[in-house]
Each structure stands twice: as structure tokens, then as C-alpha cells.
Design a protein around this nucleic acid. Structure first.
Lengths: 143, 143
DNA sequence: AAAGATTGAGGTATCAATCTTT
DNA sequence: AAAGATTGATACCTCAATCTTT
């Protein structure tokens, strides 16, 4: 095992196996698709629990145009609210609501447990650490 | 950085960034979506360059029902051929054609180069190795 | 009845075109 | 003209129902 191809191929496979598991689990237990969970998580981590649509598109896994529709769905469910940006009338904020924060907090423990079981379960602490650092480097490099 | 969550979240982000890049590059240069490339790669690696639909569904990143449609598309493009399984009339083989093999071989160098640049580029050989081994362990564990 | 495979219906995501504000 | 954002059209993917063979 030496070429980056092997690592990348394994990443594709792990994603293909685990993402659907997490998605189904989040829907079943909390009515949250993984795409919603992802957006809520990014908003929760942002200063003021808010991000412009563009910033959200860059932070989340969803594409820029997908984010528009996800935020509309989340707003319809009361988990997010859209707010004007007083500094620039072109841009819009997506803001996490109290309800959204509550739903997210309910979902996080189960999500972490599933990840720990399915992903972390067979790896040493050191391995987990190296993987996290390495993938963070890949991200930092491109964008 | 210690929890498996950080590693998993980074994996999601890397996938979200790199998969579209590779997909666009494969389409542009070779007319092959990443999903096609994935199926062709699995068939090329299989004994006799053939797999039953179920085996292909397990090997590839596509779901079982998606594989049916992908193989139909690939057969329409002449890159794959469907063959009866003489041992069991329920099952069908997807077989890589000479054309499919040629197209795959043309695409592989560019694919490897893009992965090397975008993924392996910023990592040491040791990091790449640990990531590949760790992700392989995760896969072996679940399925 | 279970296993291999396909398919109709519907959900999910992307692209390119568009609208508005800077 | 460029940046922020949305949207119509379309491609992509999954679920559950179905068909056939074991």
C-alpha cells in the first residue's frame, strides 16, 4: 500500500458505506437527513450561529445552489431562519433557530456514537489522529 | 484532534471537494462519469473481467439498483456486455468489453495524476500509507 | 420462500440561466 | 461588470414493488 490511489479508493468506499448508514440513522431517530444535519452543524459552529448563503455553501458539503434549497426546507421546518444582511442587500443570512439548535443537540450524541462504532471502532487513537490530520491537510491545500 | 468525529467530518469534506473534481475531469477528458469509471475499474480487477450484478453492487460505490442502470448505460455505450450465467439463470454477468478496457486504460493515468496532485500532494508517504491502511480496516470491519 | 435482478415513482443534486444589488 | 442568491430544467440516485428462477 503506497500510492495515493489506494487511499483515495478506500475513502470512496468508506464514504459509500457509511454515509447512507448515518443518513438512515439520523432520519429514523430524529427526522434529520444527513444533509440537514450537516447544514445545522455548520451554522451551530459559526459566530452568531449564522452564515451567508455563500459561506454556508463553502463550509457545508452541499453545493452552493443546493444550499439555497436546503435552507428553504430547513426554514419551512422552523430549524433555520433567513435574515437580511444590513451591510449588503444582495446577501442573506441563514440563522440557526432555538428549535434548530435543540434538534441538533438531540441528534449529536447518537451521531457521534454511530461514527465511533462504525468508523472509529477498529482504529487506534493514533490512527484516528493521523487520518484526521492528513485529511485536514488535503482540505487546507485546495481551498 | 482526537475524536473519530473529526476524522469522519474531514472525510466527508474531502469527498465533497474531490469527487466532483474527479468526475468533471473524467467527463471532460474521457467522457466517463466517475460512476462509470468506478464500475469499469471493478470489472477490470475481477477474475475474467466479469462480475454478477450483486457482486458488482457490493464492490462498487453504487447501490445495487443503481448498478442495474449503470450497466445498461455502459452496455449501450459498448463498454460492458451482459452475459447469462450458465450456472444460475437468475443471475447475470456484467463483462468488460475490449472497448471498455481500452477506454478505462486511457483514463487511468489522468485519474491517478489528479488524485496524486489533489489528494496525495500534500501528504507524506507515511501519512498516505496510514490513511490507506486505516480506511481499509474500517471497510473490512463492517462488511 | 428466498435470491438475483429490474423498474416505476419519487426524492435529491447539479448546471446554467436569471434576477437583484453592488 | 461582478457578486450574492435563487430557480427551471434536467440528470442522478434510491426505495419499494415486481418479476423470474432456485
Amino acid at each position: 500500500v503506497e500510492s495515493p490511489i489506494d487511499a483515495w479508493t478506500a475513502l470512496l468506499r468508506v464514504h459509500a458505506v457509511l454515509a447512507p448508514i448515518l443518513d438512515r440513522e439520523l432520519r429514523r431517530a430524529h427526522g434529520l437527513p444527513l444533509s440537514w444535519f450537516d447544514v445545522l452543524t455548520e451554522l451551530d459552529a459559526a459566530p452568531g450561529r449564522r452564515l451567508t448563503m455563500t459561506a454556508l455553501g463553502e463550509a457545508a458539503t452541499a453545493s452552493r445552489s443546493r444550499v439555497s434549497r436546503l435552507v428553504d426546507e430547513l426554514a419551512g421546518a422552523g430549524l433555520v431562519r433567513k435574515e437580511a444582511n444590513p451591510a449588503d442587500a444582495r446577501s442573506a443570512y441563514a440563522v440557526l433557530t432555538a428549535d434548530g439548535r435543540r434538534r441538533l443537540r438531540q441528534a449529536v450524541p447518537g451521531y457521534r456514537a454511530t461514527v465511533a462504532r462504525e468508523f472509529g471502532g477498529r482504529l487506534s487513537a493514533r490512527e484516528v489522529d493521523v487520518v484526521a490530520r492528513a485529511l485536514a491537510k488535503v482540505l487546507a491545500a485546495d481551498r
